[in-house]
Design a protein around this nucleic acid. Structure first.
Lengths: 235, 235
DNA sequence: ACGCAAAGTATACAAGTGTCTACCTTCAGT
DNA sequence: ACTGAAGGTAGACACTTGTATACTTTGCGT
């Protein structure tokens, strides 16, 4: 029987038990008003119920731990995050009939629904994995250059997925260049992530923030469409 | 003669010399890969050339120091930041002739120029005050809730200025609601600030980032205009 | 059955930390 | 001229931290 353990705790994978415990401890300590680079290695070991020196068996440094933690979180979120977008697209499939208001060749109603569903599912997901998002955003603009860069890469990965989906699902007018699409995807991704922190730390504004996120995406998208159209009419 | 000291060093104001030295020390230590909350009070005093206990004469806590630092930076940036936008508007004044491509009643060429000039001046300003922006962005999503909130307020202040200027300079179509305008201003402000960190830490991409910032603002603005127009055509 | 590497533990040490109490200096207000 | 507060210093306290060396346990390949 190959391990019927269905608990998908964040740092789950094939790490040695001590290593996993340390990673989980770091995640636990970070969420509650700490930054990764401010954690002490002894504190970490204490929280994990291990001897301080065990830390050295697995990591050379706290930055090292941070790096593996971030990469682990990254690979753990990437799949679900993408699945969620396709789920949203599936839900909005019924809206694909013709003769419906269009903006430069794009079915606005459908786009709007896809955006709506995606945003809703995204924040539902944030609610399920708050710690991952908290440390992700904290360190994206945090003190350690290494972690910043790692997170930048992870998020650009998410953005790349989004770009592919936008293309496949035909959510933006043809004519938008690849590079522009890339920029837009990155902006949306970054913005969603950073909103996630406000979302988590201001429960009273959660509904409002979800709506703002939707509007922001729609603005960016239609703005990009308009500008691209205007550009090709010469200027 | 009322103090002809023209050096506008960041924590300048009417603070006692020791207090000022501590604030400046904090700013110095933070920029180079540290977060405010990870600073030690002894370390701080050492950097400032003072006795550790002097810290207690002025602050109760490191968070306390962080708070006054942030508020000080905020009031020091607010004026110049606003002046800079009006300077940009002045430069773009020549473009105000009629019969020129318009989008829903807005002179696109002029808007584009105002945005261009503003963004350029903004990043020039970032180049002049890197430390202020670095700690500002770091702590906006950093570990301490108190600092996060303080920074959120400071940045909303900047956004409020921007909103007024947009209104006064007629950069957006009439018909955009006040609340929407507020949201847009906040998004632009936040985005500019967070880009500032990437800008500072990636000198090779500075030109590219300036351009991206411009496009982002234009997208948001024209997107907002389009959506608002579409909305009032019923939907 | 042996050996060896990986994972984890125990003890120790120098250095740094936050905080306390007590003392000294400066200087404006009366 | 005296007082008292504000700013700054000195020394000491208990504690935590990162790191080093040395030891034990566990489990797998041969």
């Amino acid at each position: 029987m190959p391990s019927s353990d269905t608990s998908l705790e964040s740092p789950a994978s094939e790490f040695a038990p001590g290593k996993r415990q340390l990673l989980q401890a770091a995640l636990r300590l970070c969420c509650d008003s700490r930054s990764l680079s401010s954690l002490g290695l002894r504190e970490l070991a204490r929280e994990a119920g291990l001897n301080p020196n065990t830390f050295y068996r697995h990591f050379s440094d706290i930055d090292d731990l941070g790096l593996t933690l971030i990469r682990d979180i990254g690979t753990q979120l990437r799949g679900p995050l993408r699945a969620l977008r396709q789920q949203a697209a599936a839900r909005a499939k019924g809206d694909n009939k013709l003769s419906v208001p269009r903006l430069f060749g794009i079915n606005l109603i459908r786009s709007r629904r896809v955006v709506h569903e995606t945003v809703q599912l995204f924040f539902d997901f944030v609610d399920q994995q708050p710690e991952a998002f908290i440390v992700g955003i904290r360190e994206r603009y945090g003190a350690s250059p290494a972690l910043r860069q790692a997170l930048s890469e992870v998020m650009n990965g998410f953005a790349a997925d989004m770009r592919e989906d936008i293309r496949d699902l035909k959510l933006m007018p043809t004519g938008i260049s690849d590079s522009q699409l890339a920029v837009i995807s990155e902006q949306i991704t970054h913005h969603l992530f950073q909103m996630a922190l406000d979302y988590l730390s201001t429960p009273a504004r959660q509904h409002e923030l979800r709506q703002q996120a939707e509007e922001h995406i729609l603005m960016l998208a239609s703005g990009a469409a308009v500008l691209q159209r205007l550009g090709q009419l010469r200027l």
